[in-house]
């Protein structure tokens, strides 16, 4: 007995409008590949990706498919499968704009939005070329009493996402989502106007009946829609459910080297209909 209206993967993909600022989870926190495939099928344009703090095949695919105008990230990489070829090509040929960042800055900008304050200070960064290339970042003198005179510190603007999509293991009957210790998903959700989640299963219980489960839960108050999507993170892995698919990742890494072979890979990828409950 489910107490919320389930939607489909297609419904979620339709919420991703052209030019929106889309939150992207890291490779370890539930990559929403089934929705990503639908976004590509929809030929969505002008997306701005905000990665917390990096992206893997999801970002590379969206870039290769021509859906992306801009990316803010600390890294794009296929991990043990090498560099992200479509991302590299897009940067080397100025096809997309990049806001190069560093992991803690990507966290801090969302934390500012969580607290609804206009900016957040962060150590480090000074003297880097990251700072030089970021017009939206500033330096101030520490306004609170400081041991060293004239101490400089970087401030970063609050960033509000338009929409966040991630894949998780379970939702309960009341639409609460299990995120385990992947608390960065909560940070992303708190800082996003809309949040959609795909899950492996919907279980017949309420996570708030158990304190241990409640501590690992993103409450439904932050969630705008849930769809079942078995193997929805594939070929990425999902903690406690499945490992990354080495064969598919190697195949992707090879195919994505050139635009032509990437296009062919994507035609095949889409026509296979890997995902159920679309």
């Amino acid at each position: 007995m489910v107490n919320f209206k389930q939607i489909t993967v297609k419904d979620i993909a339709k919420e991703v409008k052209d030019n929106c600022l889309l939150g992207i989870p890291a490779d370890y926190s539930g990559v929403p590949m089934s929705v990503t495939t639908e976004i590509i099928k929809n030929n969505t344009k002008g997306l701005r990706l905000y990665c917390l703090p990096l992206t893997t095949i999801q970002g590379d695919m969206l870039i290769g498919a021509g859906c992306v105008n801009e990316i803010e990230t600390a890294a794009v990489t296929l991990g043990e499968y090498g560099q992200a070829p479509r991302f590299q090509d897009a940067i080397e040929n100025s096809k997309i704009k990049i806001k190069d960042s560093t992991c803690p800055a990507l966290h801090a900008q969302l934390q500012a939005t969580e607290k609804s304050v206009p900016f957040m200070p962060l150590r480090g960064i000074l003297g880097s070329d990251l700072y030089k290339n970021r017009n939206d970042w500033s330096v101030i003198n520490n306004p609170i009493s400081s041991k060293t005179n004239d101490e400089k510190i970087v401030i970063l603007p609050a960033v509000q996402l338009d929409i966040l999509i991630f894949h998780a293991s379970k939702a309960d009957v009341n639409g609460n989502v299990q995120i385990g210790r992947r608390r960065e998903l909560a940070t992303l959700a708190h800082a996003s106007k809309k949040v959609y989640v795909t899950v492996e299963e919907i279980v017949d219980e309420d996570f708030f009946d158990c304190e241990l489960k409640a501590a690992a839960t993103l409450p439904s108050l932050y969630v705008d829609g849930i769809s079942l999507s078995k193997n929805g993170a594939w070929p990425c892995g999902l903690t406690d459910y499945y490992e990354i698919d080495s064969n598919e990742m190697s195949k992707y890494a090879k195919s994505a080297k050139y635009q032509e072979t990437f296009d062919e890979y994507m035609r095949n990828f889409i026509s296979q209909n890997y995902y159920s409950n679309i």
Binding site: Q83, S101, A105
Partner: peptide
Amino acid sequence: RFSGSFGSAL
């Protein structure tokens, strides 16, 4: 182009 700066700047 390589992957990016990760957390190095902090």
